[in-house]
Design a protein around this nucleic acid. Sequence first.
DNA 1: TTGAAAGCGGTACCAC
DNA 2: GTGGTACCGCTTTCAA
Lengths: 342, 342
Amino acid sequence: MNLKELSKITGVSQTTVSRALNGYPEVSEKTRALVNAAAKQYNYQPNTKAQALATGKSKMIGYVLPKASQNEMPNPIFGDFIAGAAQTYGKQGYDTNITLTDSDTQAETYRDLYAKGSVDGIIMQAPKENDERISILKKLGLPFVVHGRSTGSNDYHFVDVNNTHAFVRATNFLVDLGHQRIALINGNENLDFAIRRKHGYLQAHEDRGLNVDTTIMFSSEMTEEFGYHTMTKLLTMKSPPTAALLSSYIMAIGARRAIGEKGLRIGKDFSIVIHDDALSYLPNGSTHPIFTATRSSVGEAGRLCAEILLDAIQKPEQQPRQIILEAELVVGSSTGPAPQHD
Amino acid sequence: MNLKELSKITGVSQTTVSRALNGYPEVSEKTRALVNAAAKQYNYQPNTKAQALATGKSKMIGYVLPKASQNEMPNPIFGDFIAGAAQTYGKQGYDTNITLTDSDTQAETYRDLYAKGSVDGIIMQAPKENDERISILKKLGLPFVVHGRSTGSNDYHFVDVNNTHAFVRATNFLVDLGHQRIALINGNENLDFAIRRKHGYLQAHEDRGLNVDTTIMFSSEMTEEFGYHTMTKLLTMKSPPTAALLSSYIMAIGARRAIGEKGLRIGKDFSIVIHDDALSYLPNGSTHPIFTATRSSVGEAGRLCAEILLDAIQKPEQQPRQIILEAELVVGSSTGPAPQHD
DNA sequence: TTGAAAGCGGTACCAC
DNA sequence: GTGGTACCGCTTTCAA
C-alpha cells in the first residue's frame, strides 16, 4: 500500500493524503477521518526509503562496531546500552543501523556512512585516548555522541561514568579498612576508561600517602582467564596484596576462582572491589551478596546518549552536552578488614 | 557527491556514470576509467535510500529485539551472533537494522517492517515452541532464517545447535562417571532450546535406566542469582545430587559460588557440566580449566544464518535449508567420579 | 557505446 | 482546504 493507491481509494489527492497522515492542520476534519480510516484499514506504512529521500533525513542512528568487537568492547555492554537507547528512539521513530567494520577502517566507515546518507547521527563507543574518530566526525559535521570520553579534545557531546572518582572511592574504601597493598586489575589501558580508572587508583594512593607498587598493577583484555592468572600471580608473590580492585565482573570471576584455589576466603583473607558498568545479568536492583561493586547502569547511559543525539540532530549547533554519571557503590561481603600480619 | 554532479564533472551522462560504476559490460574502457577515477577522487558513494527506492531492495537485514531482551535472550549471544554474521553481510554490502519492540508487539513489528520496506530479510532469534512469528513471516513472504528451531512447523530455514544431543551426551558423560542423581538447571522452558535440552536430559535417563527426579530439575531466567539459589537449594536437600547440568555459563557462576560456600570442591565432591553457546568472553579456543563444557560457537551460527538468508533473498522459493550443529565437548576439571557413599 | 526520460514513493512549494 | 507538480538520487528501458 502506498500513497498513490491510498489517494485513489479515498478519492483525495496524494498531497492531501500525505498532509492528513502527517497531521498538518489545514486538512478538514472530514477528510482527515476518511484518510486515517483508509490508512488503518489497509495498514498503510510510509516507505522509509522514499521518506528519507524526500526529506533528507534517514531516521537512523548508526553504531559502528569493530568486527573483533571482543577485544574492543565487552559484548554485554552493547546489549544493555542499546536496550536503554531503545525507548527514546522508538518514541521518535528512529531505528538503529549497525555497521561492522575492521578496527583499522573505522574512519573510512564513518565517511562512507555519511556519504551514503545512511544515518542521521552516530553513537560512538569505547573511545581511546585522543581518538581520531572524534575529529573525523566533527569534520564531517555528522551529529554524534560519545559513550565515554576521549582525553585530548573537549567540545563534543558525551555521556560517561566518573571512572576516576569511582576508583578513588573504591581505593579509599579499602584503605579505610586497613588495606595497604591493593592490587589493580584493569582493562586494556589504551581505552580511555581504563586510563581514568588507573588515575583514580593512583590519586587515592597519593592522597592517602601510600606507596604505589607497579608490580601489583595489571591491565589487559577483560577476560575471566586474565583475572584468574593475574590473581594467581598476585597471591604467589613474596608479599602479596591483601585486596584488589577489579575493572570488570568477568575478570572478578576468574579472580575469585584463583582466591578460592589458594584456600583464601573472600572478604576475610582477601578483599575485592569490582567495578562494572554492565551488570544486567544480575537481578535488577539486587545487591549481589558476595562482593562490593561500584555499579552504574549502562542502560541509563544509553538512554541519555540517545536523548542528546536526537536533540543534536534536531537542533544542531548547540553547546556540547556532557554528562558524567557517578557510579553507585554497592556494598556486599567480599570486602573486610585487612588481615593482621606479624 | 551524487550522480548528477559526477556526470557534470566527467562530461558523460548520469546513465553512463551509473553503468560504469556498477560494472555494466557495455561501457567503453576509456569511459569507465574516467568515471572510476572521478568517483574515487570525490569519494562518491551512492545514496542508499535512492538506490533502495529505485531497485526495491533495501540491502538491510532486520533483527527485531524485544525491549526486555534481558529476559528473552542473553545479551552476549547477540553480540557474538552479529559479529559472526558480519563478514557475510559485509562482503555483499548488506547492513544490519535493529528494531526494538515490546515483546507482545513483535508480530506488528514484523508487519510494519515489511510494509515500510525497511529490510530485505529477517533473522529471527530465541524461538518459542510454536512461535507465531514464523507463520507471520511466512504469510508476509519476507525471507527469514531462524536461529534456533520452533517445534510445531517445519518448512523454514534455520540454524540450530543440537541441544537434545548435547544434553544426552552431557548426561551420559556424568552417568559414566558413576553419577546417579544429576540435577538439571535449565533456562526458561517456554524457549524451544530449553525444552530440547530437557528432552535430552530425560532421554539419557531413560536410555540408561535411571529414575528421573523432578525435584532436582529447575528452569527459569538464566541469571547468576538463579544458579546460586538453585544450587544452594539442591545442596541442602536430604539426598542431594552429586552432579548438575547447567544450561548457561552465567548460571554456573552462581552455582559454583554456592558449591564453594558449602565447602565442597568442584570436580571432587560435586561435578558440573555446562552448556553455553556464547563463550566469547573466554579466550578463543582455550579449554576452560575448571569445567566441562559442551561448547559451540554462536558466531558460526551467525555466519551460517547470514549466508542462508542472503541466498534466500537472492533466489526465493528454495527448499528450506536446515542446519543442526553439534556442540563441542570440552573436558575440564569440574567433573569427576561420583563420590562414594555408605 | 551512449543519452533522454520515466519511474521508485514520498514531501513540499505554489496556485487555486 | 485541496490539488498539481517538481524534486530527492538512483536504476532501467528505450531509442539513437
